[in-house]
């Protein structure tokens, strides 16, 4: 089973993300693999361990994306493709999907696994568009995956009201929820092996794409500005006699917060 996993290198959300002049400040930031993409890698590796085949990880982005790809190789992926072209910068979901579709088409594949969304933009657009471009069936927000034979997946996907159980014939695209699995760590074994694994760096031209189709120029969605989230006001702590405190809190809830209004 050959699996393609597109991954995105995102700012570590544990950091204080600052906005300067409507843009995200990049200094002092460190980057990680977007969390749901790690689940996607893990799912791909588990399928490979069961049915054999190859896992190819793909990332579109500047130099730092290579680090994320190396991590994925260390986790156990077999090959990596890095599309590193300044013209691809500021692509929208559609642009990224176009690039990823070209990469996927370079070789035969049975399955594409993505994260359900990227941890930085939370858009969740690239995966579905990619499936459409390739004419693949897609199952989103997968929380359970079983596969007795390589041609079929049995999936549970999480909806608003419950779970949907789906049987899926390959080729297809699925998107991982973080409760799907526990991503493995890059082990010493993996790090050693990763040094010898291929990491192809491609330009848009290598994929037969022109700079106008993607990037800022080809984007249909344009980001106007970033704004920092509003800070939540500090909580209040009440101490003293239980009855008195209760009365005070009730009073504040009713008259100040007006939650009963």
């Amino acid at each position: 089973m050959n699996i393609v996993v597109p991954i995105k290198s995102v700012i570590d959300v544990e950091l204080n993300i600052r906005v300067q002049e409507g843009k995200i400040a990049k200094d002092g930031m460190s980057y990680i693999i977007s969390k749901w993409d790690e689940n996607a890698i893990e799912a791909a590796l588990q399928l490979k361990e069961k049915h054999g085949g190859e896992v190819t990880v793909v990332s579109v982005g500047p130099d730092r994306a290579s680090e994320s790809l190396r991590k994925a190789l260390a986790m156990g992926a077999d090959k990596a493709v890095h599309v590193n072209d300044p013209a691809a910068e500021d692509s929208d979901s559609f642009g990224f999907a176009k690039i990823l579709a070209k990469v996927a088409q370079r070789g035969p594949f049975d399955l594409i696994i993505t994260g359900k969304q990227a941890q930085d933009t939370d858009m969740g657009g690239t995966g579905p568009i990619l499936a459409e471009l390739l004419g693949l069936p897609q199952v989103y927000n997968v929380i359970k995956l079983e596969s007795d034979e390589p041609s079929t997946l049995k999936l549970n996907r999480l909806g608003h009201q419950g779970q949907e159980m789906v049987e899926l014939k390959l080729p297809a695209l699925i998107a991982a929820n973080d409760s799907l699995n526990e991503p493995r760590l890059a082990s010493l074994r993996g790090i050693m092996a990763a040094k010898k694994k291929p990491l192809d760096v491609l330009k848009l031209a290598d994929l037969g794409l022109s700079p106008d189709e993607v990037g800022a120029k080809g984007a249909r969605v344009r980001t106007l500005e970033f704004q920092p989230p509003k800070r939540r006001a500090a909580g209040k702590k009440f101490e003293g006699d239980a009855e008195e405190v209760t009365r005070k809190v009730m009073d504040l809830l009713a008259n100040e917060a007006k939650i009963f209004a």
Partner: peptide, 28 residues
């Protein structure tokens, strides 16, 4: 060699690797 550490340690290792502290809180 066996990657057989208690699994609770995995998140701790990840935190150390990313942010240099066991919780993985932002290094900044």
């Amino acid at each position: 060699m066996h990657e057989a550490q208690p699994e609770e340690l995995n998140n701790t290792f990840r935190g150390l690797e990313r942010n240099g502290n066991p919780w993985g809180l932002g290094y900044d």
